[in-house]
Design a binder for these strands. Sequence first.
DNA 1: CTGAAAGCGCTTACAG
DNA 2: CTGAAAGCGCTTACAG
Lengths: 330, 330
Amino acid sequence: MAGRNPRLDDVAAMAGVSAATVSRYLNSPEVVAAATGARIREAIEKTGYVQNLAATALAGSRSRLIAALVPDIAQSIFNDTVEAMIDELASDGNSVMLALTGADNHRLTREINMALGRRVDAIILTGIVSDGEMRERLRSAGITVIETWGLPEDPIDVAVGFSHRAAGEEMARFLRQRGYKRPHLVVPRSTRSERRADGFTTRWMHDGGSEPTRLEVHVPSHFGQGRLAYRGLGDLPAQPDVVVCGSDWIAQGLIVEAQAAGIRVPDQLAVTGFGNLRLAGDMRPTITSMDVDGARIAREVMRVLRARAAGTEIETRIDVGFRVIARESA
Amino acid sequence: MAGRNPRLDDVAAMAGVSAATVSRYLNSPEVVAAATGARIREAIEKTGYVQNLAATALAGSRSRLIAALVPDIAQSIFNDTVEAMIDELASDGNSVMLALTGADNHRLTREINMALGRRVDAIILTGIVSDGEMRERLRSAGITVIETWGLPEDPIDVAVGFSHRAAGEEMARFLRQRGYKRPHLVVPRSTRSERRADGFTTRWMHDGGSEPTRLEVHVPSHFGQGRLAYRGLGDLPAQPDVVVCGSDWIAQGLIVEAQAAGIRVPDQLAVTGFGNLRLAGDMRPTITSMDVDGARIAREVMRVLRARAAGTEIETRIDVGFRVIARESA
DNA sequence: CTGAAAGCGCTTACAG
DNA sequence: CTGAAAGCGCTTACAG
């Protein structure tokens, strides 16, 4: 252990074979003779050899490094998806470089450049790349680029997600059917939340409702905003009968504040969330939310990655859908 | 753009210098002549050159890759710290490999090996490495290893954190001073939570209190457990006057359930959390919690890393402390 | 099934 | 301030 790390050569010397054979054993054990393999295995054991993956990446065509770019992780609706993705990727022998791009994605360019420099096999995005030049650069970089959570018409490479507009429309349909009349929207300032809100509004008005009122809040959204949003209700011209929140955290905070004010949910005021986080089912009352299957997204991402590694064809737009989870709060 | 990525050689050729000079310009611009630097800059621009960091890592002594190993990120008390750390590291030109070790750290060994294979400059741990052999391996790996959140007597290399036992003792002191008589502890099954609970119990009994009752819950802890914990109160021989929760999420859930049962917090039942998450200050009532300065931990981690890069000395145990944040709930 | 050799794209003494 | 050359530790045709 003193001094330098053992190298492939050291293992080869001890096993009495060439470095090439050890390399083959490491990458496709089935191609080396069983007896040779056994000797190599023993030598690896004895030397405490750990493959230098930087060298492997440089010499080979794959780095087995995947970059995941997310706005934040302190309190992000993507966390479940990211966790599931990291788990899947790791079990497949990959390492994940996690980069934070900031709530408004202002560090996106820098982090994409960094990922490109590391020669990652793939970049997984949760934020939206709106810059046309950057989209082109990613396209011509020759690596897999997966946009998740959204489902753009013309993906950079592959997209795994759902239509946020359709999700908004679905929520409008659901609430109308339940008989609500005056929805109020609490909308985080992110492209996707806004798209859901627009979908909601379009559908709601199309079905004969009047335009829902709307409160915009900063991202990332959190519990405290729900409390503030509740208090903002007093300023509205007419009281809403249901508040459609951009996230479950906002919904939870709003319910807590309403209850503190002696308002019963959903009798006097109904509330819906988004994301179907664990707390939505645990809250009192339980929160009606919209479920996005993060584990499914993670699996589809893996499917794409494996297809690319194998050189097989894969769809470029994978819709994982969404569904309303009706609970007590609305 | 068609074909391969531009290399150092391409830039060198266009600028009319050698690859060595371009490399120098990239790593220490001040050492090349201003005019030469300008030509190189231009060539980089024109070729769209992006340094291959895998090659840089292999040839040089630093990879500028840092591994951060955390149990999970779906709902982790470490998230704020990890986010602050990633931000700090990225702004210093590093990339962060995030690895998930699982709630009970069962993937710790695998992920450490992976990090070692990537030849990371440093490994940042949040979980506890209890395996003696692994601790030895990390010690002799010749890289920086930073254990965070805890403060072991004999760190593998450097530790940045605080004494969980002392934190438990401090909470006992605080509650006794407030006049509470019968604390009940809700303890996640993690070494550190248990240490805090032990510290609490020791101190409480030392000050003349009788042994607090205790409920153990799974990790990672979450909102729903607080609700269950509240319901478990009915089974206790005597009703507690304060519930000491292992996390703010548990505290929040417990408060919601208590209120749903018509119990007023803190008048009829006081509650404390741990972690001082944002929601602690936003909840109704606001939650008395224990603050751990995640941003401070992140800064200290950076200080260690920079000291190591510069080859200067650094302490091996850095205590960032903790403090009780007294709010409405207790 | 295995080996010799070239190459991946950088960095870094060593000279000048 | 700059260049020629060796080396970082692997992989992968090419031969046999």
